[in-house]
Design a protein around this nucleic acid. Structure first.
Length: 904
RNA sequence: GCCGGAGUGGCGGAACUGGCAGACGCGCCGGACUCAAAAUCCGGUGGGCCAAAAGCCUGUGAGGGUUCGAGUCCCUCCUCCGGCACCA
């Protein structure tokens, strides 16, 4: 409104481009212009070797699906605020972006649409990069990398060969999650409720030869790292990692076998309850236990056991733990309890896990619920060895569940009477003395299965030779490059294995006929070191360049989705330690690659649906809904739950259409303002409008002030400012403090935006003197005193506003920066300096309470004494009213905050 | 089942280490501008008592406790979300 009035008055010429644009905030052209400028000036390029003031900021790189969604926008907007903030504060910032480019979707596209996975991937990358660039993010595109090129994955092959040499990579038969639908093995993280993460088809257990990385060898170090990251990573992630590592202290006990079997004369068990050793009444072995069939053969029950094992394996394919009832079979074999010398029958049980502990469990039905259920079913004896502290007598005949609490040892020979916690230690020590066991540690963490029967992944660089076994490809012959001509016309199976020449190779050792490994590596291997590669992505001498990595690592702030809490974040920590141990990293690099972690919440939105003929929901896009009815089928629409944006629920907001309408700055601001970063965000169109309005308001206010700011002196007049301007200046500096604190470390970006909004409101209230806006009659006349005070303070306020807002809405701020006569970009201008004295309040509000209830307020100078404040507080009429006729028994005084009279 | 986290206006969310609950935004109500609308601007907005204001009462999932003072600390319970789930 003001702009048009001025234009009419000023009669601006056609050449005054800036003025013509002053009318309305139109982000489209403006954003493109500044993105061009930034790129041309190379503003986001990181130094090769930064000094001590480096800041490595990283967002988890995306899979190039071809479509950027609002979840990405949120992730990258959060990161970009931090990147711009640290840059403005003078840090050397590394802020790279790349592509997690291997993976199943490319192969599926190849199978379904006969596309070349490489072509498909690079087309997607181009498309996603284009969309990403619309957002004005501060990436150093010179460091862009894609994991699917030999220049990247070759180094994984080298590392794999070295790991093989050190026994950190190995091959073994193992039960794995096999997806028929996807024709591959899946990691545990990729299996959700017995179904694959991708198509939701059933996953079965199969025994296959697989490649593993020995994560278990690093369990202790991974756990130590978790403890060290306390405070720097979200507690939730640390908890999940700690649970996954699952360290538990216990005791290893040897039970001599009556008849040696399978080359051994004893059965080794792991228990956390050695105190219950005297209560053992049977043994339970896992179905896959190597001695299972051997013992049965000796016990004369081979066929029964074999039948049970076969049957149970089928069960285990699908069933979840809680749907599986306890079942088992007697092997016919016995062992001896080393404590009592008693005879213990050995069973195979369906609930015993082979890959935890030793795969054999000493069963104490009186004090373990699972053993109790098993014993009841097979009518096995129950022997109580722990007595409850309350004196209750446990009777095996009538117990309906196991007693698992603390108590005193009973029926335990020389240990009787001890508290069971002490019994644990004493029995363990006693076993150790007699060579029958001892204290040990068990881990829940498993080795990392990295084999994938897929062709769009990093080939595992080994050769199988009938004579020499597994032979690594010699380092000089690396990389093993994926053949370009894979056939995807056959559904299922690995096209690499079917390739006419790829599998054929002579054994590197003996020259005889060999077969190349056709499994590829899990894509989590690529994402386990990409952050190192960014330090010099072109380096062709080694996976990473020492001096660069030494200069940039660790990542100072890592940002990504909570779904990677254990998978990616555990693998990357492990791999990073391995690289360090193998000498690929300089020793100065710390064990932990990610110094701080932020896990951002999901972007959610309301869903709309109508029921189909079977009552199942049919989801609708918001634009298909009109007046509460579906435009598709005319039925009344139900508003569904607020759920994560997804194509299947049709509750997505298209990025490009959005940016076209509102601009990238509004997209960024909204995702940052609507919720704190770590919480889920609900997308609401009204909220978007609010952010848009705010930016338009900044636009208007700044443009209105532009001429005055240009003309204003750059320094404040000496001496005291008139109160009105001093108040504005105080708010300016308080806002600098708040926004700085909110961004730095705390990541309360939503409150940082609030603070900036408050400053904007104050700036609007401070008014534009030459605009005699009747609606702003409260502005009052320009106060007396130095006439340059007002313009100078307002100039500082406008400059500060743009500086504080620029990490959130960089395009708008740079444009306005230029319009108020500043050169360059806000990024280069730097973060505003904070002046403690200017931020200090000269009058404090002290609240007065009587018996804890608010009865009045006082405005007092900061240096007021207790006596002065208390005296004035008592004189407040409303306070006096409540003090009348009462006796003050205590006066609480919190300087600058409150007075509380306790009366009787 | 076990281990975490969270419950604050009509809504998203603020409240640093116990000190004015509800910042900021949305929505809503009233007003200005306009022929009108949109946009914009100004004011109001937890609930209750009171004609209104002043003022008072009440209020952060429920109940108890500690404290001069509790959204914040402690105990019990309820609800929701997340993780793990035969880990011996």
């Amino acid at each position: 409104m003001l702009g048009s009035a001025r234009r009419a008055a000023g009669g601006r010429g056609a050449g005054a481009e800036a003025g013509a644009m002053a009318d309305k905030y139109v982000p489209g052209e403006l954003e493109a212009k500044w993105q061009r400028t930034w790129a041309e000036r190379g503003l986001f390029r990181a130094a090769d070797l930064p000094g001590a003031d480096k800041f490595y900021l990283l967002e988890m790189f995306p899979y190039p699906s071809g479509r950027l969604h609002m979840g990405h926008v949120r992730n990258y907007a959060i990161g970009d605020v931090a990147a711009r903030f640290h840059r403005m504060r003078g840090k050397a910032v590394l802020h790279p972006m790349g592509w997690d480019a291997f993976g199943l979707p490319a192969e599926q596209a190849a199978m379904e649409r006969q596309l070349d996975p490489k072509q498909w991937t690079f087309d997607n990358i181009d498309e996603m990069r284009r969309q990403l660039k619309l957002l004005g993010l501060t990436y150093d595109w010179d460091r862009e990398l894609a994991t699917c090129v030999p220049e990247y994955y070759r180094w994984e092959q080298l590392v794999f060969v070295r790991m093989l040499e050190r026994g950190l990579a190995y091959r073994r038969k193992s039960l794995v999650n096999w997806s028929d639908a996807l024709q591959t093995v899946l990691a545990n993280e990729q299996v959700i409720d017995g179904r694959d993460y991708k198509l939701g088809e059933p996953v079965v257990q199969r025994e296959l030869e697989q490649w593993f990385l020995r994560t278990t060898a690093y369990a202790e170090r991974l756990l130590a790292g978790v403890e060290a990251l306390a405070g720097a990573w979200p507690e939730r992630v640390l908890l999940e990692q700690r649970a996954r590592i699952g360290k538990s202290h216990g005791t290893e006990i040897r039970f001599p076998l009556e008849q040696p079997a399978g080359g051994t004369s004893e059965l080794l068990v792991f228990t956390t309850r050695p105190d219950t050793l005297f209560g053992v009444t049977f043994m339970s072995l896992a179905v896959e236990h190597p001695l299972a069939l051997e013992l049965a053969r000796g016990g004369g029950r081979e066929s029964e056991v074999r039948a049970f094992v076969d049957r149970t394996r089928n069960d285990l394919r699908r069933m979840r733990a809680d749907e599986l009832t306890k079942d088992g079979v007697f092997t016919g074999a016995y062992c001896t309890n080393p404590a009592t010398g008693g005879r213990v029958p050995i069973f195979i049980a369906n609930f015993v896990l082979m890959d935890y502990g030793t795969g054999a469990v000493m069963a104490v039905p009186a004090h373990d619920q699972r053993d109790f259920e098993f014993a009841r079913k097979f009518e096995l004896p129950i022997k109580v060895v722990i007595a409850p502290p309350d004196g209750t007598r446990l009777d095996p005949a009538t117990m309906d569940c196991a007693y698992v609490e603390e108590g005193r040892q009973v029926n335990s020979a020389q240990f009787d009477g001890l508290p069971n916690s002490e019994g644990m230690q004493r029995i363990t020590a006693w076993l150790a003395e007699r060579g029958q066991g001892g204290a040990t540690v068990s881990w829940r963490l498993r080795d990392w299965c990295v084999s994938r029967q897929r062709s769009w992944g990093c080939p595992i660089p080994v050769v199988h030779c009938a004579a020499c076994g597994v032979v690594p490809v010699p380092e000089a012959e690396l990389p093993v490059v994926l053949p370009p001509d894979l056939a995807f016309d056959v559904r299922g199976g690995n096209p690499l294995a079917r390739h006419p020449t790829f599998p054929n190779i002579a054994c590197p050792k003996c020259g005889g006929p060999g077969r190349r490994e056709t499994d590829t590596l899990d894509t989590f291997v690529e994402s386990s070191w990409y952050f190192l590669r960014y330090c010099d992505p072109q380096w062709d001498q080694a996976p990473v360049r020492h001096d660069r990595v030494a200069a940039w690592m660790p990542v100072d702030q890592y940002i990504g989705g909570i779904e990677h809490a254990v998978g990616h974040l555990m693998y990357a920590r492990f791999y990073h330690m391995v690289l360090k141990d193998l000498g690929f990293l300089p020793a100065s690099v710390p064990d932990e690659p990610f110094a701080r972690l932020l896990t951002q919440g999901m972007v959610c939105k309301e869903t709309y649906f109508t029921p189909d003929e079977n009552g199942n929901p049919v989801w609708h896009y918001p634009e298909e809904v009109e007046d509460g009815k579906s435009k598709v089928n005319g039925a009344p629409v139900t508003v569904g739950r607020i759920e994560k944006m997804s194509k299947s629920k049709r509750n997505v907001v298209g990025l490009e259409a959005f940016v076209e309408r509102y601009g990238a700055d509004t997209a960024r601001l909204f995702t940052l303002f609507a919720a704190p970063p770590e919480k889920d965000l609900e997308w609401r169109d009204e909220g978007v409008e609010g952010c848009w309005r705010f930016l338009a308001r900044v636009w208007r206010i700044t443009n209105e002030a532009a001429e005055a700011v240009r003309a204003a002196p750059a320094t404040l007049p000496p001496g005291e400012l008139p109160p009105r301007w001093q108040a504005l200046r105080r708010l300016v500096h308080q806002t600098i403090r708040r926004v700085t604190r909110d961004i730095d470390g705390r990541f309360h970006l939503n409150t940082a935006v609030s603070a900036i909004m408050e400053l904007t409101n104050a700036l609007a209230d401070a008014g534009v003197p030459e605009a005699a806006d009747p609606a702003r009659s409260d502005c009052g006349p320009e106060p007396a005193g130095d006439p340059t005070a007002g313009p100078a303070v307002r100039r500082e306020a406008v400059l500060t506003l743009l500086r504080l807002l620029s990490p959130f809405a960089p395009h708008l701020c740079d444009e306005l920066w230029q319009r108020i006569g500043q050169t360059g970009t806000v990024l280069e201008a730097g973060w505003p300096a904070f002046d403690e004295a200017a931020a200090a309040e000269e009058v404090l509000t002290v609240v007065v309470q009587v018996l804890g209830k608010l009865r009045g307020q006082l405005r007092v100078p900061p240096d007021a004494t207790r006596e002065q404040v208390v005296e004035r507080a008592q004189a407040e009429p409303n306070v006096a009213r409540f003090l009348e006729g009462k006796k003050i028994v205590k006066t609480v005084f919190v300087p600058g905050k409150l007075v509380n009279f306790v009366v009787k």
